[in-house]
């Protein structure tokens, strides 16, 4: 254990460096730069709001905020996992040449998405101000669901990144899966249009709980119960543990397959 902490400390600076490289490459030489990351969710929100309020006539108060809270959390998850899944294969050149603890790469991609999440949150804050939406003091609890979903995403990333080394076509499959996953998470539709049986099915979806938690504290001024917290923590930790086990078992074979 002590050995693991030591190596982690040794490579912490590398982790920081890789994230800042991602950041520089993403934002260098684009005039609007960081602004795009803020503008993107806002533009999406405008489109979705226009479509759904006029076409489907959903009865949701503050639909723009409802959509933004859901999509911010969900797109963080898809961002983190999709970029992580190719992280090992993409770093093949480094892995083949020097020894580095390999979990650094999925961790790096997750944390980079985490940094980008802050820009999306800025978009959310701007919309809250523009629409004069009143938030209550419970908003200070907002980091909690974000931490939960970060851990959950890391677990999924560890699983996906190691599987991708052996089965490259998972990348295509996962694109479809995230689309299905999105429709199984109440992001663009209200929860109350679901039947009871459907709701039961959806409550097996971890993201349903994280999104719900985030909306509770940001929109509805509710403090989630202990039960909700335990459900979220269980989903996060179990996924992380499973991910770590799969990753640890397969990591020595990575170099032979990339």
């Amino acid at each position: 254990m002590k050995y693991y902490i030591q190596t982690f400390n040794k490579y912490l600076y590398l982790l920081f460096n890789l994230i800042s490289r991602d950041f520089k490459i993403k934002y260098r030489r684009s005039i609007l730069g960081i602004l795009w990351s803020i503008l993107n969710p806002v533009l999406m929100m405008v489109v979705i709001t226009a479509v759904f309020l006029n076409l489907f006539k959903f009865e949701i108060d503050n639909f723009p905020i409802y959509y933004l809270t859901g999509s911010t959390i969900f797109s963080f998850f898809t961002d983190a996992t999709t970029s992580s899944m190719t992280s090992i294969v993409g770093s093949g050149q480094i892995i083949k040449k020097v020894y580095i603890p390999k979990y650094i790469f999925p961790l790096q991609k997750c944390l980079f998405s985490f940094v980008n999440l802050f820009f999306s949150l800025i978009a959310l804050i701007i919309m809250i101000i523009i629409l004069k939406f009143e938030v209550t003091y419970t908003v200070i609890l907002a980091p909690i669901p974000i931490i939960y979903i970060l851990i959950f995403s890391l677990g999924i990333s560890l699983i996906l990144s190691s599987l991708t080394v052996f089965f490259r076509d998972i990348v295509h499959l996962y694109g479809v899966i995230t689309t299905i996953w999105m429709y199984f998470t109440p992001i663009i539709y209200p929860e109350n249009i679901l039947s009871d049986s459907m709701l039961k099915l959806i409550s097996l979806n971890p993201l349903y709980h994280y999104v719900g938690y985030f909306r509770d504290v940001v929109m509805y001024g509710k403090i989630p119960s202990l039960k909700v917290n335990i459900i979220c923590i269980c989903f996060s930790l179990i996924t992380l543990i499973i991910g770590s086990i799969i990753f640890k078992r397969t990591q020595d074979k990575f170099v032979l397959h990339i």
């Binding site: 490579y11 920081f16 520089k24 490459i25 260098r28 050149q93 020097v98």
Partner: peptide, 19 residues
Amino acid sequence: AGFDMELTARENIYLNGAV
């Protein structure tokens, strides 16, 4: 290992050193 051609030499020295 880990040189990124988009970055400057200065940045690469730190990156490769970290690798």
